[in-house]
């Protein structure tokens, strides 16, 4: 592991502010959407300052668009870096996707064909980003609804190739692995078995929504499904424990219930450790695949 395990946290959203200030909830850290705080003044920065007095905060972005065919936006990166000075985020992450075509921002996370030349192009840009922001930089795997015939490799091969070529980190979204596995018909364990876990710096878990045709949408508005927790247990074991964020972005629960959802991750961690202790004693690096059998 390249980074400290911050424990269990939740994505910081506006409906949470009042509860955080009045109850100081027992979460270990918060994750912010960077772009929501790359502003010149007002409530966002004031609220963030208050949270920073009590908790570590990590930054997660949605608009870098590392795979966009346009060059890097250094004005955007400069503002990102300024915010990082305020939060002192131990790392920064964004998504392995494109977000704009020309000057048109889609405000969505869009997939690319998994080709050698695309991997090289994205890795070259990601390396520049990490150098520029002067902090560890991680890319998150997407949930996607299309796959391309022009792809030359699997998503997990592509993901690994970009991360290793750029010498950056993985922000592994376990729910996204599950959603894409259903949408594209692959075994999520094939994905998870292939990852270089020494590069996984943080994990996301979240809920999703099923469409009429059986496809899944990554909606972040429902409890994490058991299938996803099973995958999480595997990832937790392979990483030896990694900073984990529950994302909940719509149809908000009460804050206490949101925290309770996040704490399910802690229960899985504890159960896993107990189970491993029973099975292997001190040898917690046993065969990880056995856990999912």
């Amino acid at each position: 592991m390249a980074a400290k395990n911050l424990g269990i946290g939740i994505g910081l959203r506006v409906p949470h502010y009042a509860a955080i200030q009045s109850t100081a909830p027992a979460v270990d850290f918060f994750e912010i959407i960077s772009e929501n705080f790359m502003v010149e003044g007002g409530p966002p920065l004031r609220n963030l300052s208050r949270v920073l007095e009590q908790y570590p905060v990590v930054q997660h972005g949605v608009s870098l668009g590392i795979a966009s065919a346009q060059g890097l936006d250094f004005e955007y990166l400069d503002r990102l870096k300024q915010l990082a000075r305020m939060t002192d985020t131990p790392w920064l992450s964004d998504h392995l996707c494109w977000t704009r075509s020309g000057s048109h921002h889609s405000h969505d996370l869009l997939p690319v064909p998994y080709t050698e030349e695309n991997a090289t192009y994205i890795a070259d840009k990601a390396r520049i980003v990490q150098d520029f922001i002067e902090r560890p930089f991680a890319l998150e795997n997407l949930s996607s609804y299309v796959s391309f015939k022009s792809s030359q490799m699997t998503e997990w091969e592509f993901y690994r190739r970009v991360i290793e070529a750029a010498d950056i980190y993985m922000m592994l979204d376990v729910n996204n692995v599950y959603v894409s596995s259903v949408n594209h018909g692959f075994d999520p364990m094939d994905y998870l078995r292939s990852l270089p876990y020494e590069r996984v710096i943080q994990v996301h878990v979240a809920g999703h929504t099923e469409l009429a045709d059986g496809s899944l949408l990554d909606t972040h508005n429902r409890p994490v499904r058991d299938e996803v927790w099973q995958l999480y247990r595997y990832v937790h074991q392979r990483t030896g424990g990694v900073s984990t964020i529950l994302e909940w972005d719509a149809d908000f629960l009460g804050f206490e219930d949101t925290v309770a959802q996040a704490m399910i991750a802690r229960r899985h961690m504890t159960e896993l450790h107990d189970s491993l202790d029973e099975q292997f004693g001190d040898q917690v690096d046993g065969d990880p695949d056995a856990l999912t059998a």
């Binding site: 346009q70 060059g71 030349e117 695309n118 840009k125 391309f148 022009s150």
Partner: peptide, 17 residues
Amino acid sequence: SPPESPIAPASLCRLQE
């Protein structure tokens, strides 16, 4: 000055447009 961004593959440009 910021480094030069790499040039995107032509196929990626067409797909994104």
